[in-house]
Amino acid sequence: MGSLLHRVKSKLSIFAHRRARGMLEGQYGSAGSGRSLDFDDLRAYVPGDEVRDIDWKATARHGSPLVRRYLPVRRQTLLLVTDTGRDMAAESRGGEPKKDVAVLALGVMGYLAHRHGDAVGLVCGDSAGTRALPGKTGEAHLERLLREIHDSASLDAAPSRLQTQLDYVARTFSRRMLLLVVADEFAPDADTERVLRRLRAQHEVLWLTVRDADLAVPADSYDVAGARAARGAALLPALMPGGVAASASIAAAYARARDERDAARQSMLRRLGIAEADAGSSDDVIPAVFTLLARQRRRR
């Protein structure tokens, strides 16, 4: 299997021309740390930048707005927190395994942290236990983290229980960090809110939801043969039989239950002041990261 980090960088190259990449890196830099008075460099102004950061003399010479960038007050640690239970081996809304979407999202944030000079650590696991890899710098270390996530999330893994990993982070890490939590469309409960409230008091927390497959698609309208050839029978979603999925009342009940679960999760995260975005496929990941960082910046 090829390098997972190479896939991340290729996706960034396709998406981000120079100006957009500068905006993405700038949004990351402001997500979890302040800034000093030490000037770093200039870059093109993009919507959302602080007007006070515009360098008017350089703008006059250049002919278009330029903003000053400053060195961060301190380097930080980005902690990637994700579920690697069997649920993450199931199919996403876009048709690929949810773990592939998660790896890309975690890899994009990890690579931004690497470019920023920050250390990146990992906490992952399932209901049976948690694994942690300490924060370090360097592309080889980031590749190791992504490989750990990819290889751990399988149909042979224990059932997912993200709260196990959240509890571990709350007990283990006291120094303030930037946390990126990646999970699927789980239904929150009082215990989850309790531990997230504690984490939010200790750390900056970002949340990205990987969208589940739409299981109400009738099986007789799904390209089972093509999906089996592309991904293997084990990763096919548990689709409803055609007659069941075709029932308007059942489809409406399914959609209502999904919407209620989403609303409960989003309401909880809003109460706690945690920025959330979602991605249903790999193509959604980088726009979702943009959205997530922009929301976090507005909350600061």
Rank of each mutant, 00 (worst) to 15 (best):
residue 269 L to K: 03
residue 110 G to R: 04
residue 128 A to T: 02
residue 267 S to W: 04
residue 154 S to E: 03
residue 101 V to D: 08
residue 190 A to C: 00
residue 222 Y to K: 09
residue 24 L to T: 05
residue 114 H to Y: 12
residue 246 A to G: 15
residue 210 V to I: 14
residue 99 K to T: 12
residue 268 M to E: 00
residue 134 P to Q: 07
residue 9 K to L: 12
residue 284 D to L: 04
residue 256 R to T: 11
residue 202 Q to F: 03
residue 5 L to S: 07
residue 168 Y to T: 07
residue 279 A to N: 04
residue 44 A to E: 15
residue 262 D to K: 12
residue 46 V to H: 10
residue 287 P to V: 01
residue 278 D to N: 11
residue 110 G to S: 07
residue 248 A to W: 07
residue 191 D to G: 11
residue 101 V to S: 09
residue 137 T to V: 11
residue 219 A to N: 06
residue 180 L to E: 09
residue 89 A to W: 09
residue 61 R to D: 09
residue 278 D to C: 12
residue 94 G to A: 13
residue 41 D to K: 15
residue 224 V to Y: 05
residue 291 T to R: 15
residue 69 R to V: 12
residue 13 S to H: 12
residue 179 L to Q: 00
residue 168 Y to D: 06
residue 57 K to L: 14
residue 215 L to W: 06
residue 289 V to P: 04
residue 47 P to D: 07
residue 226 G to F: 00
residue 12 L to C: 10
residue 118 D to V: 01
residue 118 D to K: 01
residue 235 L to N: 08
residue 244 V to G: 08
residue 232 G to T: 03
residue 164 T to W: 00
residue 38 D to K: 14
residue 16 A to C: 15
residue 208 L to A: 02
residue 25 E to N: 11
residue 226 G to Q: 02
residue 227 A to W: 11
residue 33 S to F: 06
residue 221 S to W: 11
residue 112 L to G: 07
residue 75 R to Q: 13
residue 238 A to P: 10
residue 264 A to H: 10
residue 127 S to P: 02
residue 296 Q to G: 13
residue 128 A to V: 00
residue 84 T to Q: 01
residue 149 I to E: 03
residue 235 L to Y: 12
residue 68 R to Y: 00
residue 162 L to I: 14
residue 200 R to G: 02
residue 151 D to Y: 09
residue 110 G to F: 02
residue 142 L to H: 00
residue 117 G to L: 03
residue 140 A to E: 12
residue 223 D to Y: 02
residue 185 E to R: 10
residue 261 R to H: 05
residue 159 P to T: 08
residue 14 I to V: 14
residue 162 L to T: 09
residue 36 S to Q: 05
